[in-house]
């Protein structure tokens, strides 16, 4: 993919973001309910209420409010959270790295498991490993991340208490981080006890998020691998005497991975959406966990900031998926 195409895709993302911001802005405001009333003690006067409305920019029509909000947003100011009384951008940026680390870790896990299961399934076609993989896959496709998360807590947190069931890092370790990317920072600074602790906290939420995705990748990749195995170039490789493992891994996988990759991009959206609940269940301090609290507290500025950051993540992921097509398929490299 050339530089100009990349630029075009970035420009295309602008109307999408604009659309999302309008929809969220209107949706959050058309429905009755008064977030200001919830902030004040019961005996507050109408005057106090009005002052606070002005302070949070909630007076005026929806259009006026949107124009003001958009103007400030373009300057990098997303307002102040009503429930936490802090700058929205700061809050979101403070939590975002935790969610990104979790989502990327879960995706790597899902892709690894999915690719392994699909290749083993194709390699042992018609024999018991394929039957087993199909059976497990059917089960995994049916069970949502919500149930996986709870089942993991129950089994590895309580019945065999080997893993921590909440938080991101054990506060008793007393480590200080200068960025939000704890895992990367700990790895870079070679603090391996901290790395171990971070991974122990991350593994269960990541598995809960990864399993449904892994199941979908397995199914799609297995079908496209089976198709690729019937192609001429695979026949030629067989005639040349390459081993079946080599044929699958080197020849077929490369071509078969494009549909699976498209799907991973689409499904990553669902995975990030899934962090909302999984983070809540594991009390993991990411933006998903924050989003639930923001919604329950009707914290309008924070909800908007969070939804917009979800939208940005989706757009970036789709961009990355588009870019990687070129790497996998030379015919698309123009």
């Amino acid at each position: 993919m050339s530089g100009s195409l990349l630029l075009r895709r970035l420009v295309q993302a602008v109307p999408t973001l604009f659309g999302v911001s309008v929809v969220v802005f209107v949706l959050v405001r058309v429905v009755p309910g008064n977030p200001i009333a919830m902030m004040l003690p019961p005996g507050a006067s109408a005057e106090d209420m009005e002052r606070l409305r002005q302070a949070y920019g909630l007076d005026g029509s929806i259009l006026e409010q949107y124009v003001i909000w958009l103007g400030q947003a373009l300057q990098g100011s997303f307002g102040t959270s009503i429930s936490l009384r802090q700058d929205v951008l700061e809050l979101v940026l403070g939590r975002l790295p935790a969610t990104l680390e979790l989502a990327v870790f879960a995706t790597i896990m899902a892709v690894t498991v999915g690719v392994l299961a699909a290749t083993v399934g194709v390699l042992f076609r018609g024999r018991w490993p394929e039957t087993l993989i199909d059976a497990i896959n059917g089960f995994t496709l049916a069970v949502p991340d919500f149930i996986w998360a709870l089942a993991l807590i129950l089994v590895f947190g309580v019945l065999l208490p080997v893993l921590p069931i909440s938080g991101r890092v054990d506060p008793r370790l007393g480590t200080e981080f200068s960025t939000g990317f704890y895992l990367i920072e700990a790895l870079v600074s070679a603090r391996f006890t901290v790395v171990g602790d971070l991974l122990a906290h991350m593994i269960m939420p990541a598995i809960a998020l990864a399993l449904p995705l892994a199941a979908i990748i397995t199914r799609v990749l297995k079908n496209s691998l089976a198709e690729a195995m019937a192609q001429d170039y695979v026949m030629i490789a067989r005639v040349k005497g390459f081993s079946r493992w080599r044929i699958i891994w080197v020849e077929a996988l490369r071509n078969a991975s494009i549909p699976a990759l498209t799907l991973t991009g689409v499904q990553f959206t669902f995975l990030v959406g899934g962090t909302v609940l999984v983070e809540k269940i594991f009390s993991y301090p990411g933006i998903g966990n924050m989003a639930i609290d923001a919604v329950i507290n009707r914290d309008l500025p924070l909800i908007q900031g969070l939804i917009l950051s979800f939208a940005v993540i989706f757009i970036v992921v789709n961009l990355l998926v588009d870019l990687s097509y070129g790497l996998l398929n030379p015919r698309l490299r123009t």
């Binding site: 999302v20 949706l27 669902f270 909302v276 989003a291 979800f310």
Partner: peptide
């Protein structure tokens, strides 16, 4: 294009 769980909660 919205995460369904978040949308439902909202």
């Amino acid at each position: 294009s919205f995460p369904p769980v978040l949308l439902a909660i909202m």
